[in-house]
Design a protein around this nucleic acid. Structure first.
Lengths: 341, 341
DNA sequence: CTGAAAGCGCTTACAG
DNA sequence: CTGAAAGCGCTTACAG
C-alpha cells in the first residue's frame, strides 16, 4: 500500500532495532556480526523487501557491476563473447551491463566512457577503436580486459585469438585447393591500420605475407567494405568483375555471409568463387550456408575475460596477463577446389 | 601525471573559482547562469577533463541511463530491437545498458531487479517471464515499456506485434499451398501458458484456432522445444516420423533455423516439409536459407520503446500507451506447395 | 560484537 | 545571477 518509496538501509536498521552499520555488515557478509543480529537483520530485510541501491554503494565501495563495450551488436560473434561472459558470472554476485556502440566507429570512446562514468568495477573492451594511450589511462583507474587487439600494456589484460595463425590456416586451405587468385575482403583502412594490432589489421598483414611467400604478389587484391553484411554484399558484387578472384578470404563471418550472398546474386556458386570467413558463428555451420571459417571460440574468450577481471578485482592481481586462444580451421562447402581450365 | 583520482565537481569549482552549485547548473544546462560564469566553468571542465559521476547524480536526480532486459542475447531478433533502441537514443544524452538474462528462464527477474537497483531512469522489458503484478509494482517506481506480451496495465506501456494476425497470415499461406498436416513448433508450456499474453502463447492459440476453423482439428500437432536453435533441431528431428507433417509453423526464426537444419539432416527438403518462421531476422532473407516468415520490425519496436520511455521521463506522461506493429508475410523458398500424391 | 559519525560526489531548495 | 548548506543511501574507519 504505502509503497511510495523503497526501503533504505535506515528503514531496515530501524525495523531490526540496530544500527545502519550493522545492516551494512550483514549485507556485505562482513566479519563481526553475532548470529542473533544477523538473523534479526535478515528478517527485516525480508520483511521490507529491501535491496541496496547500487548507486549509493558505488559512492563508497564497489558497484558489483562489470561493463562490456560492444562495437556492433548485430555481429553474432560478439554475442558469443557476451554469452560466455554471462555464464562465467553466474553466482559471483556481479552483474554484467552491455554498452552498445552500434552507431558508428567513433562511438567506442563514448561507450567506454559511459561505463567508466557508471563506476563499473571492471570493463571488457572488444577491439575498441581507441588509442593504446587512452585505454592505458583508463586502465590506471579500473581493471580492464581488452579482447581482440594485439597491442599490450602494463595496465590491462588481453584476450586474443592468434589471428596470424588463423589466417595462415585459411590461406593454406585455399592454396591446397589450388587457388591462386585470392582476394581479401576487409574493413576500411582505419580499422586495418598497419601495426594497430586489430584483428583485421593482423589478418590483412598475414594475407599479404601468405600471398607473397607463395609467389603470388601480383594476385594480391584487397577489397574494402563496411561493418555490415549488406555492405559486404554490395562491395563483393562490385568486385566480381571480368577479372574476378577464384576465392575470397573475408575478415569475419558476418561479412563473409554478405560475400556469399553476392556470389549467389551474381549467378555464381562457391564452385566459381570460394569464400572463407573468420569466427565460426552459429549460422556458419548451417548446411544451407556451410561456410568454411576459422573458429576462435568467442564463448571461451568471454569466459576468460570475466575470470581475468575478477582476479584483478577480488584477488588484487596487478601484473598484466595475456591470454590467447588457438584458432581452428572449419572446412565446409563454401570452399571448393579451383576449376582447372 | 598526478592522475591519482579523477576530477570531481569540487575540483572544477575551485579551478573556476565558483561554487559547486554553479558547476552543477552549467552541467545540467539549468537556468540562471551568466555567460561569463558558463565560460569559466566550461573551461575548467575542459582543463580538468571532468566527467560527472553517474552514481552521485543518481542519488539525487537521474542516472540518464535506460535499461533493457534481454531474455536471450543469442536471438538476432532481440538484437534488432536493441539496434533500434540504440539509434533512437542518439543525441538524447541518455545511455542504454543491457542486462542479459541468458542463463535460464528465471533470470528475467534478476536482470530486471539488477536494472532497478542501478537506478536506471526507465526500463524496456522484452517478454519478461514475470507476473503482471510484479511488473506493475515495478511500474509504480519507474517508467517501463514492455515489448512483446499482450497483457496491459495502467502502470506501464506496451509495444507489441499483432501476433494473432501474423499467425493468421502464416497459416493462410500454408493453407493456400495446399497444406493440411501442419504442426506447430513452440517453446515449453511455461512460456505458452494460455492467457499469459506472451507472443508464443498468442501464436499457439491462433494456430489452434486456424486449424479448427479450417476443419483440421484432427491434424493439430504441437511440438515443444527449448530456447535455442539446437534444441529446435533435435526436437524437430524427433518429430519427422512416419506420420510427419507436410509443414511446420515455428514460433520464431531462431527455432525455425533449427527446424530447417533438421529437415536437411533427415534427408528432406522444404518440398517435403515446409517451414515458416516468425520475426524476419536478417539471415532469413539469405538466398541459401530463404526462410518464409513474418516480419514484425524489431528495429521499429526498439525505436518506439525508447520514445515512449522518454515521453514518460521528460514530458511527464502518465497515461499508459499501447503501440502495435503490423506483421507482414515474407513468402520465400522454405514453403512449397504440398505434394499431391 | 556494536554503533555514532564522517564522507563519497553530486543536486536541490533556499537565501542573498 | 551566485553560493552555503542539507541531504540522497550507502561504507568505512574508529571508539566503545
Amino acid at each position: 500500500m504505502t509503497d511510495a518509496r523503497a526501503a533504505t538501509i535506515e528503514d531496515v536498521a530501524r525495523h531490526a532495532g540496530v544500527s545502519r552499520a550493522a545492516v551494512s555488515k550483514v549485507i556485505r557478509n562482513a566479519y563481526g556480526v553475532s548470529p542473533a543480529m544477523r538473523e534479526r537483520v535478515t528478517a527485516a530485510i525480508e520483511a521490507l523487501d529491501y535491496r541496496p541501491r547500487v548507486a549509493a554503494r558505488a559512492m563508497r565501495g564497489s558497484s558489483f557491476t562489470l561493463g562490456i563495450e560492444l562495437p556492433h551488436i548485430g555481429n553474432p560473434f560478439f554475442t558469443k563473447i557476451v554469452a560466455g561472459a554471462t555464464a562465467a558470472l553466474q553466482g559471483t554476485g556481479y552483474q554484467l551491463i552491455i554498452a552498445p556502440a552500434d552507431v558508428d566507429g567513433e562511438e567506442g570512446v563514448r561507450a567506454l566512457g559511459a561505463l567508466a562514468d557508471r563506476q563499473v568495477d571492471g570493463i571488457i573492451a572488444i577491439s575498441p577503436l581507441v588509442s593504446t594511450a587512452w585505454l592505458e589511462r583508463l586502465g590506471t583507474r579500473m581493471p580492464i580486459v581488452m579482447i581482440g587487439r594485439h597491442d599490450r600494456s602494463e595496465n590491462y589484460d588481453t584476450v586474443t585469438g592468434d589471428d596470424a595463425e588463423g589466417t595462415r590456416l585459411a590461406m593454406a586451405h585455399l592454396f591446397d585447393l589450388g587457388h591462386r587468385r585470392i582476394a581479401h575482403l576487409t574493413r576500411s583502412a582505419d580499422v586495418t591500420h598497419p601495426g594497430s594490432g586489430t584483428p583485421h589489421a593482423v589478418r590483412l598483414e598475414q594475407y599479404l605475407a601468405s600471398m607473397r611467400s607463395a609467389g603470388l604478389e601480383h594476385e594480391i587484391r584487397v577489397i574494402r567494405t563496411g561493418m555490415t553484411e549488406d555492405a559486404a554484399r554490395v562491395d563483393t558484387l562490385a568486385a566480381l568483375d571480368d577479372d574476378r578472384p577464384t576465392a575470397i578470404f573475408v575478415g569475419n563471418d558476418e561479412l563473409a555471409l554478405g560475400a556469399l550472398r553476392a556470389v549467389g546474386e551474381a549467378g555464381l556458386t562457391p564452385a566459381d568463387v570460394s569464400v572463407v570467413g573468420y569466427d565460426d558463428v552459429d549460422i556458419a555451420s548451417h548446411p544451407a550456408i556451410s561456410l568454411t571459417t576459422i573458429d576462435q571460440s568467442g564463448v571461451e574468450m568471454g569466459d576468460r575475460a570475466i575470470r581475468l577481471l575478477l582476479e584483478r578485482i577480488r584477488d588484487g592481481r596487478i601484473e598484466p596477463t595475456h591470454f590467447s586462444v588457438t584458432p581452428v580451421l572449419k572446412a565446409r562447402a563454401s570452399t571448393r577446389a579451383v576449376r582447372t581450365g
